[in-house]
Design a binder for these strands. Structure first.
Lengths: 215, 215
DNA sequence: TAGATTGTTAATCGATTAACAATC
DNA sequence: TAGATTGTTAATCGATTAACAATC
């Protein structure tokens, strides 16, 4: 897989979507697809798909198109889904529990090993089959589990502080659900992915308003 | 507020972030800020901020900059946060309940009126103070409540079907958390905002992988 | 072989940044 | 007034789309 030239953020954001649709096609038993047909499904141009994929290699065949199963696997590999990454959930409130119970970590290539929370009487207890440890023992367990990613779902008041403990403990990425801009002491040491629910809802709010004003 | 020319998606996605930071500055008691200082906070260029804002009007003053409180209010208005929009939550599973309990709807200009779920023994019951109605009575209650937005947090198996009922009932926007591409019969009748957790995690996965390969 | 479709180069389009006159 | 900073126009940069030779 070539990975020499710079890959733009726009391309990176489209890859998971390609994967998702290819996964659907795969489970629908479709074995072959052209860039044009895939573009129809996705609502983009065939050019864009071919251009995007060409950043990483040659996965198609002239006159034939792409093998769905292969392209799906190639994109999974590009996204690092085959690396058996480990993760932990920090904060076992409503959202933390919702993710533990409902989010398909393994289907996205992640192994969820543990949860952390302040509530001490949960020591050793399980939540939906997941061991939950007290937050004060975070460093001890991280040293043992060596997770790649922490899912940050704490109250916002402790989010930045907790994020910094995670970075110091060597976490590689933080999946941040706290809806604040984390204040990281050594930002170069970690990769942040922010899920800002508010930003998402407000963009919907804008578009509804713009639609109404248009009339 | 001028709204004549086309506003790009990129600008729309940045506005909530501007709002969020201005809100922080406002509550920190800061009354005045220049585009350059705001750009430093946001990690973008002053040009971009001024260019973005100029799509909607003139909110600053030469030699002074922007009044934080006023600019915050202007962006809130652009985003439609002052329109008292109503919404309902469809699906009271883990994620639905997490949003009801923890997401600050009112701080984002939304009034949450009701939840819907299949579980009938919740009829008339409250969840965190929210009335929850059986899904079979959806149309009846929507006709009464006339919400603008539905927060879609059902199991994926019923998501598209439920989305179409919502559209038929006249909903203007769907905030979709089901991690599937909704199949809407009349797509022009509704505005979709998708929160695809998987896409978000996979982009993090990509960046961690790319970082490792760089070394 | 003929038709289809890729990967890539070139052309277009749009978004970001820089520059600066206007002016508080 | 002098310094600061806007809103906007022009220049640059990057991303998307179109076109097409290569080839399965």
């Amino acid at each position: 897989m070539k990975r020499d030239k710079h890959i733009s953020e726009a391309v990176i954001r489209r890859l998971p979507r390609y994967y998702r649709h290819l996964d659907n096609l795969h489970y629908d038993g479709i074995t072959r697809i052209s860039s044009q047909k895939l573009a129809d499904v996705l609502g983009c141009t065939a050019s864009q798909i071919r251009q995007d994929l060409s950043c990483f290699g040659e996965f198609g065949q002239q006159g034939y198109g792409y093998n769905v199963s292969r392209l799906r696997a190639e994109i999974a590999s590009i996204l690092g889904m085959d690396r058996g990454r480990h993760c932990v959930v920090v904060g076992m409130g409503n959202l933390g529990r919702a993710l533990v119970r409902n989010f398909p970590f393994s289907a996205n290539g992640f192994i969820l090993d543990a949860g952390f929370d302040l509530i001490e009487d949960q020591e050793g207890k399980n939540t939906f089959g997941l061991p939950v440890y007290p937050a004060e023992d975070l460093e001890r367990h991280l040293a043992r589990l060596k997770p790649d990613v922490a899912v940050l779902v704490t109250p916002r008041s402790v989010a930045s502080q907790m994020a910094n403990r995670l970075v110091t403990a060597g976490i590689k990425g933080i999946w941040n659900f706290t809806n604040i801009e984390l204040n990281i002491d050594e930002p170069e040491k970690v990769i942040l992915e922010n899920v800002h629910f508010s930003d998402s809802l407000l963009s919907l709010s804008y578009r509804i308003t713009a639609e109404e004003l248009k009339k």
